[in-house]
Each structure stands twice: as C-alpha cells, then as structure tokens.
C-alpha cells in the first residue's frame, strides 16, 4: 500500500450552514475509501488530535476533525480556544451534531468516497461520538472513555452537557467502547450500566476495559498514557472499522 498522504486545514459547512475550520487528511493512492470523523477532546483541536487524523489516513481512510471551537475562537491557539469555549459553557449538543453531520457530508462528497463514515472521539469527544451515532446516519462509532453518556454531571456545572441514555434506542450503528478500569468518569460501574442499557435495546456493541489504565490512556503527551492499552486499543479500532466500514 502506498503511504503518501495530503493533510491540510479546510473549511466545511457545519451546524446551521456556518463555515467552520477542519483538519482533513487523505491518502493519495486512488481507491474507494470510507471516512472517519475525529472529534477532538475538550482541550481542543490540537497537534495530538491532528496526529490521530493522519493516522486514520495512513490506514486508508479519508479522515477529518472539525474544529468545534471555530465559532468562539477562529484562528486562536488551541488552548486559548478551549478556554474561550469553556467560559461560554462549552459546545451545545445540537451544534455538535450539526458539525459532525457537516464533516460526514464533506467526507462523503470526496470523489472516491464509499459513503460509509464512522466517528471516533476521545474524552468529551467520546460522549459526543455516542451522541452523533444516535443522531446521524453513520456506520460505526468509537467511544474512547467518554463521560456522562450515562450518569448526571455534578451540581453547579455550567457546561451544556447531560446524560444521553434517553438516546440509546436511536443508536443506529455498531459501537466500540474503550475504557480504563481506573477511570472515574466514566467509571467501570457507569460503563457496565451503559452496556446493560445497550443490551436491553438489542444494540450491536463491544466494550473493552483495560486494567491498569485510567482516563486518556491513548494520549501520548500525557502521564496518563498507557502504551500497552493504547496499542491494543488501536488494533481493536482498526479491526472494528475493517468490519463495519470496509465490509
């Protein structure tokens, strides 16, 4: 497989038709390709998330990460943008869905797109990946340690998030969940509760919880990085996507 790729900042029509920034990576070798929407974590549209986008392109996918903070802080440094968005209450759920919808449409508009698109998110993006998969026509979803898919946020909490369990009946695609046993949000009890609700609703899902790992074990630039869990997690992700997006 040729490994050349092109990766660059683009714009696309997000929620409400707003033009937002996104980072798009595509393999240069011709061929029909599925797509992946990458949802960045709460600290922002940063270098590490862009590396993840390129990794999906290296594996043969069209991959894109919309900058969820484009409106609050166009052109700002990722950390300043994240701070500005947090100060305004975070990303509203409805807007997230609109932005992911726009990103998926962008991928499907590529001349060599197969039309199959998955979504993956980390941390707050894990919750948002689940939200998108319950709200949009997608073919695969990966939730990496997203908190508050079930459970109630703490009191005095000004960000615009809440539990999503009421949406579970609408989950329209297979779901892969990767979690750390030492994480508290989501805790193993919360992921077990989510698994029970998914079973009850006859959903196709596979969850894996890694012993010795906590939150953000995929994050190579943080002390939470757990190489064994992350390497195994990447293998599970690509096996899942081969089954759901390439079959």
């Amino acid at each position: 497989m040729a490994d050349a790729m092109r990766a660059e900042t683009v714009t696309l029509a997000g929620d409400g038709g707003d033009i937002i920034e996104a980072y798009f990576a595509q393999p240069l070798e011709a061929g029909p390709r599925p797509g992946m929407v990458v949802i960045h974590h709460m600290p922002g549209y940063d270098l590490q998330t862009k590396e993840i986008v390129r990794r999906f392109a290296a594996e043969g996918y069209f991959a894109i990460c919309p900058n969820l903070y484009s409106r609050e802080a166009p052109g700002a440094d990722p950390d300043d943008a994240a701070a500005a968005a947090r100060a305004r209450g975070g990303v509203p759920d409805a807007r997230l869905v609109g932005d992911v919808s726009g990103a998926a449409a962008f991928l499907r508009s590529q001349p060599l797109a197969t039309g199959k698109v998955g979504v993956i998110g980390y941390c707050s993006g894990g919750r948002q990946a689940f939200l998108a998969a319950c709200s949009l026509p997608l073919q695969a979803a990966v939730d990496c340690y997203g908190a508050f898919v079930v459970g109630t946020p703490p009191d005095g909490f000004p960000l615009k998030v809440g539990p999503l369990d009421r949406l579970i009946p609408q989950l329209g695609c297979p779901l892969l969940g990767l979690f750390g046993a030492d994480d508290q949000h989501p805790s193993p009890e919360e992921t077990a509760e989510l698994a029970g609700l998914l079973e009850k609703n006859h959903k196709d899902f596979r969850f894996h919880t890694y012993a010795g790992a906590g939150h953000a074990f995929f994050a190579t630039n943080r002390p939470s990085y757990r190489p064994e869990a992350a390497m195994d997690g990447w293998q599970r992700i690509f096996a899942f996507l081969a089954e759901t997006l390439e079959g």
Partner: peptide
C-alpha cells in the same frame, strides 16, 4: 485536564478579557 502541566488533572484558572479576544 491541563493543556501543559504534567498531570492528569489540575486546578486551572483562566483570567480573561473576552472583549479583547480568546
């Protein structure tokens, strides 16, 4: 989560002037 500090969680304070931009 911090953006820079080498810890999983930190107490973060942003002193802001939104009228001057992010």
């Amino acid at each position: 989560h911090p953006a820079h500090a080498p810890a999983e969680h930190t107490l973060n304070i942003d002193f802001l002037n939104p009228s001057l931009g992010p």
